[in-house]
Amino acid sequence: MNNKPIIIGIAGGSGSGKTFFLNSFLHHFKNDEVTLVSQDDYYIPAGEMTQEENKLYNFDLPSTIDHEQFSTDIKKLLKGEAVYKKEYNFNNPLAVVKILEINPAPIIIVEGLFILHFQDIASQLDYKIFIEAEESVALDRRIKRDGMERGYPEDDVRYKWHAHVMPSYKEFLLPYKGVCNQVILNNDNTPNHIISITEQIAIDLKEKFCKTSS
């Protein structure tokens, strides 16, 4: 890799539709054109917890992330080195833990709640995207996701939302909205709008990378 990769930061609160945005965005690239580094894979293991302990434990704080390793792995990718790490299993003892192989690529996507709060990471981002949704829409998505994928009761989801999720969003992400290159409002649950946006961003990035590489 003779040229410095372009680093795209994608930040969004819970229920903003960030996962769908990412999947749609990645779809516009070949495997060797882009790589993804997700903050979720850098949670510091909290150990097995009861349902009540899980409800009370605040995962929505920067201190729950292995910030140092997160930053180190991004620097490795910038130097053209592959990264190997365990996939985070969200404290699910039944989950099969996979070893992730994250390979360097011309475009590196870094995503997560705190990527703009961690200044050493934010300073490396060439382009910052902020994804948001109205709170009622985001909460509804969170209730559906946590119920279907993790089996959490709705009351527990609502408790964590008001006690952990929103306070953290307002303190550690929302203040950086104004420094982002693009803000995307994602209230619509139909995919066409997001697909068209990600396609245009992908086209723009490929043009920029080709010019940089030529």
Rank of each mutant, 00 (worst) to 15 (best):
L113G: 03
E199M: 06
P104M: 05
S214C: 14
V34I: 15
I131D: 12
P153K: 03
I10S: 10
I143W: 00
E134C: 03
I195C: 05
K208E: 15
R145G: 01
D156P: 00
D60F: 02
N187S: 07
Q51D: 15
T19W: 01
Q69M: 14
K75C: 03
D120T: 15
K98E: 15
I7T: 10
G80R: 02
M166L: 14
Q69F: 04
V137M: 04
L36P: 09
C210G: 12
D32C: 07
P5D: 01
I108P: 06
Y169S: 13
H28A: 06
G13K: 07
Y42A: 10
S24N: 07
R158S: 03
E199L: 00
F172D: 08
E52F: 08
N89F: 05
C210P: 02
E207Y: 12
I201M: 13
D188M: 09
V179F: 01
K206V: 10
I121D: 07
L173Y: 06
P45I: 05
A11P: 06
D41C: 07
I109Y: 04
I65H: 05
Q182M: 15
L116A: 09
F29M: 09
K177W: 09
K85G: 05
T35Q: 03
E68K: 05
P104H: 08
G112S: 08
I108R: 00
I194Q: 10
K86V: 00
D146A: 00
H164D: 03
E111P: 10
Y43D: 11
F114S: 08
V179H: 10
A11Y: 04
L205Y: 11
K211P: 03
S38P: 07
K75S: 11
S71I: 04
I129C: 04
Y57E: 08
R145V: 03
Q124H: 03
R142C: 11
L185G: 06
S213L: 13
N23S: 14
T198Y: 00
I131N: 08
F209V: 14
I197Y: 06
T190S: 15
S214T: 14
D32E: 12
K98P: 03
G9I: 05
L125P: 02
E33T: 07
P104L: 09
D66L: 02
V165D: 06
Y42R: 09
F21L: 13
M148C: 04
F114M: 07
R142E: 01
L78M: 14
N2V: 04
I10R: 01
E52Y: 09
E48A: 07
V183D: 09
F21M: 07
H162R: 13
T50L: 10
P106S: 12
Q200P: 02
E52S: 10
F209M: 13
P153D: 07
V157Q: 00
V179C: 10
L77N: 03
D155Q: 06
H27Q: 11
S136P: 00
A138G: 11
F70W: 00
A122D: 11
D40P: 10
I131F: 05
N103A: 11
H117Q: 12
S71N: 13
P153H: 04
E81H: 03
Y152I: 11
S196H: 12
S14H: 04
D146L: 01
E101S: 12
L56G: 01
P153V: 02
T35V: 08
G17K: 05
